[in-house]
Write a protein that binds this DNA or RNA. Sequence first.
DNA 1: ACAATAGTTTGCTATCTGGTGAACTATAGC
DNA 2: GCTATAGTTCACCAGATAGCAAACTATTGT
Lengths: 118, 118
Amino acid sequence: MVFHMENYSASLDSSFHALSDPTRRAVLARLVLGNAPVKELAEPFEMGLPSFMKHLKVLEESGLIETEKKGRVRTCRLNSKQLAATEAWLAEQRAIWEGRTDRLAEYVEANQSKGSLS
Amino acid sequence: MVFHMENYSASLDSSFHALSDPTRRAVLARLVLGNAPVKELAEPFEMGLPSFMKHLKVLEESGLIETEKKGRVRTCRLNSKQLAATEAWLAEQRAIWEGRTDRLAEYVEANQSKGSLS
DNA sequence: ACAATAGTTTGCTATCTGGTGAACTATAGC
DNA sequence: GCTATAGTTCACCAGATAGCAAACTATTGT
């Protein structure tokens, strides 16, 4: 499962950072439904185009989306691999958490102040 | 699945932001293994305690961890619910992506420049 | 040709981020 | 009671972020 660790951490940095903004999450949620040009993506938001383009740039540099310009139209698409890779980090932590054998002991520890035994 | 949407987006903002830093992810990965006091958590990192405490604060304000001070020791523990809630957003996007019925059409579109048909 | 469209570039803000060192507080151990 | 320990608070800094308006470029439609 450890393929190319070189910049794995940096890649997670930028992906999670990209995901930390509601505008960018909304763009991703839109692209999950299908590709779209910049103008259509920008429409729901009140900010100016230059601001919006910055968000797209953050998404593209994180690898979560890819874009291609044809004529005067730039079309954006989701990169599901990067989305999956990001989810995988969280899934792995949850798997470790769920696999712990000492959670019962911890439950007892958390409740030891309540005199259920002594 | 939509329980209390009020600050759902803001909660994701802060969780993803907390996850976007390698120090904070390392702290989470440690806490997945079990609770720990601040000093033990801080040990692997070269930064000063004040800097490290800022990271802990970001994690705590995101809800990903909880802390409790007993005597002079502050113990930290993972909040698995917040971790799961964050993962859930990504899982939902993937589910939508995987459930799309038009991805074959898109595959064709992506490969139409290669003259496999015409 | 020329006007509208789609995006880009530039320069300017205010705020947030992640780090520092130094001084301080509160507990535990002897 | 003194000292070491564990954490906290403070003031400060450089760089990144997220927004804006205005001017600009490159297509497409007529």
